[in-house]
Simulated scan of single mutants.
Amino acid sequence: MFLKDLQTGALVKITQVEDLANPVRSQVKGRLQAGEEEQPPTNFDKAKLSFPSGESLPQCWLNADYRFEQSNS
């Protein structure tokens, strides 16, 4: 799965997709898609990633308490 780094605009190939959907994890391991050679795996803050279209990641991937916070609004 590819996501976009909001700071650089570069694509990031997510190598541990299961961590992406885990709201308890604030980071996910991926490889920056820059240049012709494959980059080493790096941790990326999920809050600084989006879908390539620019759409934000779902709150259920970022915040373990999103349901609780929604019901109190």
Rank of each mutant, 00 (worst) to 15 (best):
A47Q: 09
L32Y: 05
N72W: 01
V17M: 12
M1E: 11
F68S: 01
K46V: 13
M1H: 09
R67L: 06
L20F: 09
P40E: 12
T15W: 04
A21I: 07
K48L: 13
P40I: 12
S71M: 01
A10K: 15
V12A: 04
L32C: 13
K13I: 07
V17E: 12
V12F: 03
L49F: 03
Q59W: 06
P40V: 10
V28L: 13
L62Y: 00
E18R: 14
G9C: 08
P41A: 03
R25N: 15
F2S: 03
R25E: 14
Q33W: 10
D65P: 00
T15F: 03
G9K: 08
E36W: 11
F2G: 05
R31K: 15
Q70V: 01
K4L: 06
S56E: 12
G9Q: 08
S56W: 00
F51Y: 10
A21E: 10
S71H: 00
A21R: 14
F68D: 00
T42N: 04
S50Q: 03
L57K: 01
F44N: 01
K13S: 10
Q39R: 09
S73M: 00
D19I: 07
A34D: 08
R25C: 15
P23M: 13
D65C: 00
E18T: 12
R25H: 06
V24Q: 15
L6V: 08
E36S: 12
V17W: 08
A64I: 02
T8H: 10
T15G: 06
Q33I: 11
D45P: 08
Q16N: 14
E18H: 11
A10I: 01
C60W: 04
G35F: 03
G35V: 04
E69I: 01
K48C: 12
S53L: 07
A64D: 02
F44R: 09
Q16L: 12
D65W: 02
F44C: 04
T15E: 11
S50N: 05
N72P: 00
G30H: 05
Q16G: 06
A10W: 11
V24R: 15
G30W: 01
F44A: 06
Q27C: 14
R67P: 00
L49Q: 03
E37F: 11
A47M: 09
E18F: 13
T42V: 13
R25A: 15
Q27M: 14
V24C: 15
S53W: 02
G54T: 04
K29L: 13
L32I: 13
